[in-house]
């Protein structure tokens, strides 16, 4: 956590320099300040707000002052009903959307100030992330490797290693359009791991997957956490949360309404099953159909 103890002024100067470097085409040094030891603070959001224009002229707040932290080696689950603001939060963290207010830090780097450097540190994956159907798996991975700033030799080495580990070698030269769902998913995982990111952001990673693909994904998440990566995932599948996540953030209507380990949440709500905990905290534990 070297970065955090830097005086504020120095840190600003540093980020200004890296922005200047980016403009001049100086390649960003990979993980220059990132400390990836187990338990280190990796993601920190500070009162994150995202508003979308609404017909009333008064913008609608999709995410409202959400703050939480994710550490290396832990799986953090964002739990919430549809439309709670999970995807928007994850997109802001990954630099896809610009926060209306509040800040996202990847260790000490502000996502808004250095989106490209931060994207380098994050592997982002969703269940329905698309592939370029007219490129082969190898071309697809090489394309992204180049975008992540690797030279040819580095890319070949990295992709070779990933292909070995994720068992892609049999279909490396196949067009992505011809892959099965499982193969497509493994290709996408390889893409997310290309830059060896210390952080993985997974948006509903098991949505719509069959049992087999689901197992691949869950296994993948577990191994990555064990390898020391910080994993932030959003889901509304309660059993996954129960099985995987060390800590859980409960999002409802854009607000973080509760946060903690499963046990803490149980104590807080006085319920035993996670689904009951969820309903209790969301405040919807009344019968839907009153007799």
């Amino acid at each position: 956590m070297r970065g955090r103890v830097l005086p504020i002024r120095l840190r600003r100067a540093e980020s200004a320099r890296s922005r200047r470097d980016a403009r001049r085409g100086v390649p960003p040094t990979r993980n220059p300040t990132l400390d990836t030891r187990h338990g280190c603070l990796m993601i920190r959001t500070e009162k994150l707000v995202k508003t979308f224009p609404a017909p009333t002229g008064e913008p609608k707040r999709a995410v409202n002052e959400v703050s939480f932290e994710v550490r290396a080696g832990e799986v953090y689950g964002l739990l919430g009903p549809n439309g709670a603001g999970k995807t928007t939060t994850l997109r802001m963290i990954s630099g896809l959307l610009r926060p209306t207010a509040g800040r996202v830090f990847i260790q000490d780097r502000d996502v808004t100030d250095e989106p490209e450097q931060v994207k380098q540190q994050i592997g982002y994956l969703t269940a329905n992330t698309g592939l370029y159907v007219r490129l082969s798996v190898s071309e697809f991975l090489h394309y992204f490797a180049t975008l992540y700033g690797m030279d040819r030799a580095q890319a070949r080495q990295r992709i070779g290693a990933l292909a070995e580990r994720l068992r892609l070698t049999d279909f490396m030269e196949l067009r992505c359009g011809a892959l099965s769902t499982g193969q497509r998913q493994r290709t996408n995982i390889a893409r997310a791991l290309l830059a060896d990111p210390p952080i993985l952001v997974l948006d509903e990673p098991t949505l719509g997957l069959d049992v087999l693909s689901n197992r691949i994904m869950l296994e993948f998440i577990r191994t990555q956490a064990e390898a020391g990566r910080a994993i932030l995932l959003s889901t509304h599948a309660l059993d996954e949360i129960e099985a995987m996540c060390r800590r859980i953030g409960l999002i409802h209507n854009g607000r973080m309404i509760a946060e903690g380990t499963l046990d803490e949440l149980r104590r807080l709500s006085g319920r035993e099953r996670l689904s009951d905990v969820f309903l209790e905290l969301v405040g919807a534990h009344e019968p839907v159909f009153a007799d």
Partner: peptide, 14 residues
């Protein structure tokens, strides 16, 4: 439509 835009946008590309 193919869902690749998001994939592309998470890469460090402006």
């Amino acid at each position: 439509e193919r869902g690749t835009l998001e994939t592309l946008m998470v890469a460090p590309v402006a």
